[in-house]
């Protein structure tokens, strides 16, 4: 609990990145009508501390299921899942999720939502809330209710309320899919900025190729039926990445072709 409240020290961040999450032979089947439907098959992933990984796939490839298993919302059918060497069984504040839909508590203000998960002395809570309000640029909107702010702002709150817990892994389930193009880009930049500052490990699920190329250190390309990791693509482009640059578009085209094929 205590270690979560500390930022990763610069020394640790500079040191050779160690493995934080290890997924081995993960399978998930759901009972369907008469038969069993295999949603995920043989998923093997290693995630290093501080890495930004995008899981890219078409709708129905099981990427949300994978995220739900990582979050501990549903158990895998088989396979193992180790976070910092310990098996994952239940949802917990070491693996926080930013959902695609609005999952804020509608009866709490922006700042109350951000403070919800933080168990600490009142003064610490106030300081931390203040800091994260500023980080996501919502200081002026602190006393608004979720229904009074826009979709993009809601996702900022959703981001702040989990970042404040310093999770070991941040799980994001198409968090910007419901936003308009301009807001989406703003949010991507905000996330990249926060990631650079706070050094989180992020697993980001998306079906948007350009988004994946823009964000990821590594893209895991998923197959549909059953969901499998078909290919792992390392994106070596320097940051910040320009959506219009030739090399960027080339990578996008290549990925799109693979998604279709």
């Amino acid at each position: 609990m205590k270690s979560r409240l500390k930022l990763i020290s610069p020394a640790a961040a500079a040191a050779p990145r160690q493995r934080i999450l290890s997924i081995r032979g993960l399978c998930k089947t759901f009972p369907g009508t008469g038969s069993f439907q295999k949603v995920l098959e043989g998923i093997d992933v290693d995630v290093k501390r501080g890495e930004m990984i995008c899981i890219l796939g078409r709708s129905g490839c099981g990427k949300t299921t994978l995220l739900n298993i990582l979050a501990g919302f549903i158990p895998p059918t088989s396979g193992s899942l180790l976070l910092d060497g310990r098996p994952v069984a239940r949802p917990g504040p070491d693996r926080c999720v930013v959902f695609q839909e609005d999952a804020l508590f509608p009866w709490l203000t922006v700042e109350e939502n951000i403070a919800f998960g933080l168990r600490a002395p009142q003064r610490t809570v106030r300081q931390e809330v203040e800091r994260f309000l500023a980080l996501v640029g919502l200081t002026e909107f602190r006393s608004y209710l979720p229904r009074e702010i826009s979709g993009g702002m809601k996702q900022r709150v959703a981001l702040a309320r989990v970042l404040i817990l310093k999770p070991a892994v941040l799980l994001m389930d198409e968090p910007f899919a419901g936003l308009d193009a301009q807001t989406r880009e703003e949010m991507q930049n905000l996330l990249l900025d926060l990631w650079a500052r706070l050094n989180h490990t992020i697993l980001f699920v998306t079906h948007d190729v350009a988004e994946a190329v823009k964000m990821a250190d590594r893209i895991l390309l998923m197959d549909t039926n059953p969901g499998r990791i078909r290919e792992e693509i390392r994106i070596g482009l320097p940051r910040p990445r320009e959506n219009e640059a030739g090399h960027f578009l080339e990578i996008c085209r290549g990925l799109l072709a693979k998604l279709r094929g």
Binding site: F73, G92, C96, F99, A103, L104, F105, W107, F116, V162
Partner: peptide, 23 residues
């Protein structure tokens, strides 16, 4: 989804009832 959000934010069963379910 509010319970999922609560669970990942680390709410105790007691808090789940009084801070999520009832409100």
């Amino acid at each position: 989804i509010l319970f999922q959000a609560g669970a990942m934010l680390g709410t105790t069963p007691m808090r789940r009832v009084f801070a999520i379910l009832l409100p």
